[in-house]
Design a protein around this nucleic acid. Structure first.
Lengths: 154, 154
DNA sequence: GCTTGACCCTGTAGCCGCTCCAGGGTTTGC
DNA sequence: GCAAACCCTGGAGCGGCTACAGGGTCAAGC
């Protein structure tokens, strides 16, 4: 199976497959004479697993941990449980944060009844006031498994 | 006021101030003889406004729109209202998405009672099954104003 | 006057998870 | 024998910063 067919079966872009190989999530397959990647069924399974985890918003390092655990099939799976619990904790925390955010946005939105001059707009006035608790630097965030950036159609 | 004091007052890193200038959000201040940036009170206000909007998870393009509206103080503010409504919609949609996600994660988590061998772990087995509805490409997402990536401590 | 340290400057590279492109080579079907 | 569809590598780009490197400037203390 060449990369195009693997990608079609997994319903993901070809570039993503190559990216996961470079990122060390998908093992490098053997190559054909023309230097084409040649995949076996195991690769398709592994790719499906990775995509499933991504659809659950896990980060690539988290998925790597899971894959490493799976590659030691005899070992006990408590680390997997813990990883999932932690990930669920991240999701819950993010939900709470967004709810607080939405409440604040709603209260700001309520300050403008519409169609005034910008200079008198209650929204603008409210936004000009000082912000709430400072946010954390983003470089530390990358270690976690729930994305913040929105997707298309969001 | 030099950049260090402006940043201290706004409680944000100096690099961020320079970044906002380069991004066209904060007007370039005049320079001292030694080519140091020299800020006035208006800059501090504007920076505070930007940071407040960021703390509400608005994207830089969204904030730019708001600033442009504010810079036309006579015009009517319906565009501002609409922008806020749209942003609130993004936040709500993301909350819904994360709740669905959390429910799915919880059901996966429930499949493992703990301390089995990885090969028998119900979580691993469930994750190996095919994923739900495919996700949208991320490059389109950047247009929106609610971040997906987590922060430190998240 | 000289040193030390705190501050400032520009420019570049890195983070995540891709996505897209240029510029080439190969395979497949007609 | 040729076009279209596929494949390859390497690099740049997205957002919103952060963190350097490698320099210049300034104020205080000796």
């Amino acid at each position: 199976m060449r990369i195009g067919e693997l990608a079609r079966r997994a319903d993901c872009p070809v570039e993503t497959v190559r990216y996961y190989e470079k990122a060390g999530l998908l093992p490098a397959p053997r190559r054909s004479g023309a230097n084409y990647r040649s995949y076996a069924a195991g690769h398709a399974e592994r790719l499906a697993f990775i995509l499933r985890c991504r659809s659950l918003d896990m980060s690539l390092p988290e998925i790597r941990s899971l894959l490493e655990a799976i590659d030691r099939p005899g070992a006990d799976c408590s680390g997997i449980d813990a990883l999932l619990d932690e990930h669920i904790g991240h999701v819950s925390a993010r939900i709470l944060e967004l709810k607080r955010l939405r409440a604040e946005l709603a209260s700001i939105r309520a300050r403008c009844a519409g169609a005034k001059a910008t200079a008198e707009c209650g929204i603008v006035k409210t936004l000009a006031r000082s912000r709430a608790a400072p946010r954390e630097p983003s470089h530390v965030a990358a270690a976690h498994g729930v994305a913040r950036r929105a997707r298309k159609g969001f």
